[in-house]
């Protein structure tokens, strides 16, 4: 049978990695792409810049805590922020399905503008395409972003050492749970709000401690466990996480248990994972706690030496297990 693209090719798991490794990387081979980071880093006139792009196809378009517009700005801003870049400019490409209500489009654009203002970025270029009814689902948005990396922040996995602390800026899994519970057939009356938010202000606030931050990632698709698996692959260290220290909302835990999902693998749209010098961890935690988006920040684990390239979890009952990379979308359970 002819091989075709499955949904799993787009979920950030093993199949996505295979696409990148087998098809994209060999063709677009260049030193800027090769690190496969959230943004590409390059220099113009001795200024260090970061450039990134992302497409947003979320359904439903409006959800508790956000909408596709807010997400399209936040997601791209955050991909720059975790490279240490101060986001400056954003582009906005729209693919709209024929018949899409103008009033809904307006709501989305207003939300983009509001979020952009909050994130202190300008949308400076854009494009609109309309496709026949049935050729897209409502609206898809692509945004690209450019940011400037200020002097004093030097991030890279090469700086990570055994013993470094891993900090998360808040509770995990809320975004996915918010989206899943919006699906009408589930009929939850109240659920969790998505954490969707632009995060550069959090990074900026940490400026006095930038020398203590070695690496950052935003745990979007694949969640905390999936993203950390990407990070450790091929590295000369592994990551130990402490289940008890991972901040989780009770509602998120309850709903994910009900749906047969693991919040550690669920997407976040307003969180950063930091790799930090252990002697700076407490200071950084204090600063995070003083920011509205970092109130529940916590040290959740550390970099350890063995076994190479694995993420493992010390469970709440004191046992250990490997947190592997998931390869399929998690399906709802039936009993």
């Amino acid at each position: 049978m002819q091989e075709v693209i499955s949904l799993a090719h787009g979920n950030g798991g093993k199949l996505t990695q295979e696409l990148i490794r087998d098809i994209f990387l060999p063709r677009f081979n260049n030193p800027f792409l090769a690190p496969l980071a959230d943004s590409a880093i390059f220099k113009i006139d001795r200024k260090k810049l970061a450039f990134t792009t992302d497409s947003y196809v979320i359904k439903p378009l409006f959800f508790s805590g956000g909408d596709i517009g807010k997400l399209a700005i936040s997601g791209t801003v955050n991909d720059l922020a975790v490279m240490g870049a101060k986001p400056i400019f954003i582009s906005c490409g729209l693919i709209i399905e024929e018949g899409f209500p103008l009033s809904t489009l307006k709501k989305i654009i207003f939300s983009m503008e509001k979020t952009a203002r909050k994130a202190k970025v300008c949308v400076i270029t854009g494009d609109t395409k309309v496709v026949e009814k049935g050729s897209a689902d409502g609206i898809f948005i692509n945004t690209s972003g450019i940011g400037i990396i200020p002097p004093g922040i030097n991030l890279g996995l090469e700086y990570v050492k055994i013993g470094d602390c891993i900090v998360i800026s808040g509770t995990v899994g809320d975004h996915s749970v918010a989206i899943l519970s919006e699906r009408e057939e589930l009929g939850f009356k109240e659920s969790v709000r998505s954490d969707c938010n632009p995060l550069y202000s959090l990074v900026e606030k940490l400026k006095p401690y930038w020398e203590g931050i070695k690496f950052m990632r935003d745990p979007t698709r694949g969640g905390l466990a999936g993203v950390l698996n990407e990070v450790v692959r091929g590295q000369k260290f592994s990551i130990e996480l402490w289940e008890e220290s991972i901040p989780l909302r009770e509602e998120t835990v309850a709903i994910s248990e009900l749906l047969g999902m693991d919040p550690l693998y669920l997407a976040n749209e307003g969180k950063i994972i930091f790799f930090i010098k252990p002697e700076r961890a407490e200071h950084i935690l204090q600063v995070l706690h003083s920011h509205p988006l970092g109130k529940k920040a916590s040290i959740i684990g550390r970099v350890v030496s063995q076994p190479l390239g694995k993420v493992y979890l010390k469970t709440s009952v004191g046992t250990k297990r490997v947190l592997d990379m998931f390869i399929e979308d998690q399906l709802p359970r039936i009993c």
Binding site: V304, Q306, P307, Y312, K320, R321, V322, D324
Partner: peptide
């Protein structure tokens, strides 16, 4: 998904 005992045993032996 959750790794076999084998994986866990290895983990324990090492750590």
């Amino acid at each position: 998904r959750f790794g076999s005992d084998h994986k866990v045993e290895k983990l324990n032996a090492r750590s």
